[in-house]
Design a protein around this nucleic acid. Structure first.
Length: 481
RNA sequence: GGCCCCUUGGUCAAGUGGCCUAAGACACCGCCCUUUCACGGCGGUAACAGGAGUUCGAGUCUCCUAGGGGUCACCA
């Protein structure tokens, strides 16, 4: 059997939709699983939609998540060029071959004429379908139009009756009535091929064995197959992939600001978690593993595990997975990821090892870091009601007593560090016969000025250092006096 | 609207005619641990869209209905 070859063929819109990324991922995983090739092809035949820098974004994103291509615009390959606009001259001869064999014809109808016919059809409550008007032009009429320099498109001549079937590896056999198929434009008036045409020519020329693409092409696939048949080419295997939804009726969309890969990275998600999560959205490995490296994904991937129905993107689960990845980061890596957010919270020159220790098990996405730790750089005003806590058996009066007794002990501490603070405070609680919480609650409140903090009184004191800690404790005491 | 596709807890999903009194995960709730909040551990709530049929037996096969998605461009 021939080497498996798949491709990712984005049109450069300047935006990497998470669904497209998943399509690229699946095509990559399948190729690599089969020891095949994965290629990148840029589909930029719509001159009206070109976006500056969009191709670079595709390269960057793919590289970022660890998807590499064996052939592509930037690295070349045996079947280049890999940018459709650069292949423009290559399509016309194929179209002309189709005209000769009767599978296509030149159409001189203007957009205005077509628009009028379309409106008329709609007025009658019918679905518009091109009436093959120009197919019936005789040779002389066509030549005259050509001589007159009339612009034209080339249309596919689709049979008016009968049915066409094909097999999709996920959906099985699909049959459609030819009568529902329109005579699609193959070559536009500007000489550029449409997707419908370029896609078939390129997939064949680039020896793509498995066409993996979104479900939106499911209904038009028979038309592409007619083209393959007209050329006498082998039809590739098809794998149509379901969509990722925002909720039960809407696709994840650009409008909602949470549909692109970069949106998630900017929100503080790790790329490994994003890839891992989307891999699991619409595919399952057949066992209960949920956490995968790229290598493990390649190893576990199979078409059989892909689901037919679309999946709703659940950010909750992404968060959970992201938290898993965060927890296994080394202290250095955690700090590297977090530093940007520490800066936002105004934190600098603090013990990063200690910060990591208290934050790593608590943070699920990095962007939630600043509000968790901003109290370290800036103590905001707080109410003495925070000193009330039933479970710790404390209230403002008790707290005042604790602070009165502990501040001198802390002031005399020879070394201001986690262990010495721990020994001093726990020793005090034991000596006084108090609950740990009773001693630590008022200290933590004074140090942080808020009811909920990452880490406890001892860690916070260690982070703040002697001077700032004592200043805050004194302030707490004065609030209670 | 025509055509194509889809439908198991709130979400992702396992399930390929008897092992389903329907797995697992996220979320949610409770308990334990505990120095607040987390982490961790233990437990709980919660689903075969509806209806006919085929069969000794249906989440699994068939048909119908409903709901949803896609498509019907000189976009891809």
């Amino acid at each position: 059997m021939d080497k498996i070859r798949t491709r990712f063929a984005p049109s450069p819109t300047g935006y990497m939709h998470i669904g497209n990324l998943r399509s690229a991922l699946y095509a990559y995983l399948y190729a690599k699983k089969c020891n095949g090739d994965f290629l990148l092809r840029v589909e930029d035949t719509d001159s009206g939609r070109l976006v500056e820098g969009a191709v670079d974004l595709v390269y960057r994103t793919l590289k970022d998540v660890g998807i590499s291509w064996d052939e592509g615009p930037d690295i070349g390959g045996a079947y280049g060029p890999y940018i459709q606009s650069e292949r423009k001259s290559l399509y016309m001869p194929y179209a002309e071959q189709l005209i000769k064999s009767g599978h296509a014809y030149r159409c001189f109808c203007t957009k205005e004429e077509l628009e009028k016919k379309r409106e008329e059809a709609m007025g009658r409550g019918e679905t518009f379908k091109y009436d093959k008007h120009c197919m019936y032009l005789n040779k002389n009429e066509v030549q005259a139009n050509l001589n007159a320099g009339m612009p034209y498109v080339i249309r596919q001549n689709v049979p008016v009756d009968g049915t066409t079937s094909f097999t999709d590896m996920i959906f099985g056999t699909i049959t459609v009535d030819n009568s529902t198929l329109d005579d699609n434009v193959l070559i536009k008036a500007d000489g550029m091929p449409t997707y419908n045409f370029a896609n078939v020519i390129d997939d064949h020329l680039m020896k793509i064995t498995h066409v993996m693409r979104g479900m939106e092409y499911l209904a038009s696939t028979p038309k592409y197959n007619m083209l393959y048949d007209a050329f006498g080419w082998d039809i590739p295997k098809y794998i149509h992939m379901s969509n990722i939804m925002r909720d039960d009726r809407h696709k994840l969309s650009k409008r909602d600001g949470d549909a692109s890969y970069e949106d998630f990275i900017n929100k503080g998600y790790m790329k490994e978690a994003v890839v891992n999560y989307i891999a699991l959205l619409g595919w399952n490995p057949g066992d209960e593993r949920e956490k995968f490296t790229m290598e493990e994904l390649i190893d576990a991937f199979s078409i059989e595990g892909m689901s037919k129905s679309s999946a709703i993107f659940d950010e909750n689960k992404l968060r959970w997975l992201n938290a898993l990845y965060i927890r296994e980061l080394s202290e250095e890596a955690f700090t590297k990821h977090a530093s940007k957010y520490y800066m936002k919270a105004g934190i600098s020159n603090m013990n990063t090892a200690l910060l990591c220790k208290i934050l790593q098990p608590r943070v699920e996405i990095f962007s939630e870091l600043p509000p968790m730790v901003d109290f370290l750089s800036q103590l905001s005003d707080y109410s003495t009601e925070l000193f009330i806590n039933k479970k710790s058996k404390t209230d403002p009066a008790v707290s005042k007593g604790i602070l009165l007794k502990t501040i001198p002990i802390l002031r005399e501490l020879p070394v201001w560090a986690e262990t010495s603070l721990h020994n001093a405070l726990m020793g005090f609680a034991e000596k006084e016969g108090l609950k740990n919480g009773t001693v630590l609650w008022p200290i933590r409140i004074s140090l942080a000025g808020k009811a909920v903090t990452p880490g406890g009184a001892i860690e916070i004191a260690a982070l703040l250092g002697r001077d700032e800690s004592l200043r805050r404790l004194d302030l707490g005491l004065s609030k209670l006096s």
